[in-house]
Nucleic acid binder design. Structure first.
Lengths: 233, 233
DNA sequence: GAGTGGTCTAGACCACGGT
DNA sequence: CCGTGGTCTAGACCACTCC
């Protein structure tokens, strides 16, 4: 059974994936245990272990002690996206990046926001509107709310130069993030700042972060239709 | 420097993440090398290696031979989604699921599709339109193209009961997938089948799959605005 | 050339979970 | 109980890449 010597974990992953794709090991199959596989691949158990562990992380296999490694009926399809910062995203296209702060107002948190991210009634927030331009074309409209109870120093920052996203990430650790993607029809504010007509289709990313259950910030990032997010698998 | 004994890789990850978040190791910092860290954590180098490797995979660190391990300026933001089948997604809301096939036509692949997924000029494809309903409200409009060269048996399947997505995944489980998310204005077809007005905002998922570089299928899944894809971190 | 991460090994012990 | 994966170790060699 000994095959070619010197298989690395990456090659072993490829070999196993090949057997999944060509039907050698159809769904529900129980794979040989790690020691057996190590023998047939001519490598150490740890090497097989890493290959199988990564394939399981990627959703192709399920592993359980004692019952072994099984081929998933439907490979778990997890789409993985890299979300770059706007600035990087724009500069990556060789376009010139420009940022403009349009609105900055400390205020009581509105009820919808309190409910959405879990603020107390008395919490003060800082509300910002900004636009990110690529070659002077509006690229993203950012509607951001920062919880001043969690980040009091934001009250002293003008944000007329610093991007709120980058400023926050530099000083505020976070423990949890939630993002949602959706489509929406442009409201008056979005239409004005993105130079589109009201009602036009926009792509929206919403991002909320918390630090140990304390909400830090909620941002709503709107893009022209035509903006596409693509998986980086 | 020896700290508590018996640190596992998961604990080490937590400790290091803690130092990133509390500012002990700010952005751009070069971390001690693996051997030094192993000494201070009281564990083997392989254990530190795994912790650092995973933190780099998750976007917090960058590692390069010789130059060492550095703290990323902005942690790579990654969004991870599980993409459920429409049927599961609808049934999970306790709504009644219904499927309807509207159009089924074998034909030459149009040029835009050939270019998009890489088909030869002579390849035949099967073109399908279907709608997925939740409690009799149209939920998703599916515009799908199946490469009959890669999946000849699709020509013999009527798809009036079987969902194309599920049928395909049963037969061709381990494909490579690319997905994109975007917003669009409803065209006439989408508007009609989703019962919205032309021009209304829709959320679109495009999904292309290949099996060993051979294109298998391209699907364009449109949803009402209001549909949201949500992720954890 | 030399420092650093990338990987592999052979062996060990542990933890979970069927039987 | 006991088979299986989960993890750890100590050591080794290799492959980049900066100097």
């Amino acid at each position: 059974m000994g095959q070619n010597r010197k298989q690395g974990y990456a090659e072993i992953k490829e070999i196993i994936l090949g057997r999944l794709k060509d039907g050698t090991w159809p769904a529900e199959t129980r794979l040989p245990d790690e020691i057996t596989l190590a023998g047939s691949f001519g490598c150490a158990r740890a090497t097989v272990n890493r290959a199988l562990r990564e394939l399981a992380d990627e959703g192709f296999l399920s592993r359980k002690r004692k019952s072994g490694t099984h081929v998933n009926r439907i490979p778990q399809r997890q789409a993985r996206f890299q979300i770059p910062s706007v600035r990087d995203e724009i500069e990556a296209t060789r376009a010139r990046y420009r940022y403009h702060l349009l609105h900055r107002e400390p205020r009581q948190a509105p009820a919808w926001l309190r409910g959405r991210i879990g603020l107390a009634d008395h919490d003060q927030v800082l509300h910002l509107h900004c636009v990110h331009y690529a070659d002077n074309e509006p690229f993203q409209f950012e509607d951001r709310w920062i919880n001043l109870t969690a980040v009091p120093s934001a009250a002293d920052e003008s944000f007329d130069q610093r991007l709120p996203g980058e400023w926050l990430i530099e000083r505020m650790p976070y423990t949890d993030v939630e993002m949602t993607f959706s489509a929406t029809a442009a409201d008056l504010t979005q239409a004005e700042y993105l130079s589109v007509n009201r009602g036009q289709s926009l792509f929206v990313i919403e991002r909320t972060t918390w630090l140990k259950d304390a909400p830090v910030t909620y941002a709503r990032l709107s893009h022209h239709a035509g903006y596409k997010l693509k998986t980086g698998y």
